[in-house]
Amino acid sequence: MPMTLNRVSVPVTVNEDACIADKGCTVCVESCPLDLLAIDLLKKKAFMKYDECWYCLPCEKDCPTQAIRVDIPYLLR
């Protein structure tokens, strides 16, 4: 069936200068109860892959370098 891709703004921002996923860290990916974060294989940095956020904050609290900021999703803000 015909499909399209919609753009959406996602609530999780990763500070790529602080993120140490390139050194093998996957703490945020493991923390997320909804499994929404992933490591970009080219950039070797964490990013929010799916817009299914409960704005619950484990990713932000558990990040060893405070590289993550969780905002309230735009529809709720």
Binding site: P33, L34, E52, L75, L76
Partner: peptide, 13 residues
Amino acid sequence: SSGYLFGTYENPT
């Protein structure tokens, strides 16, 4: 009522 599928009271998992 926000329309956000995962903006639930319970953990949406």
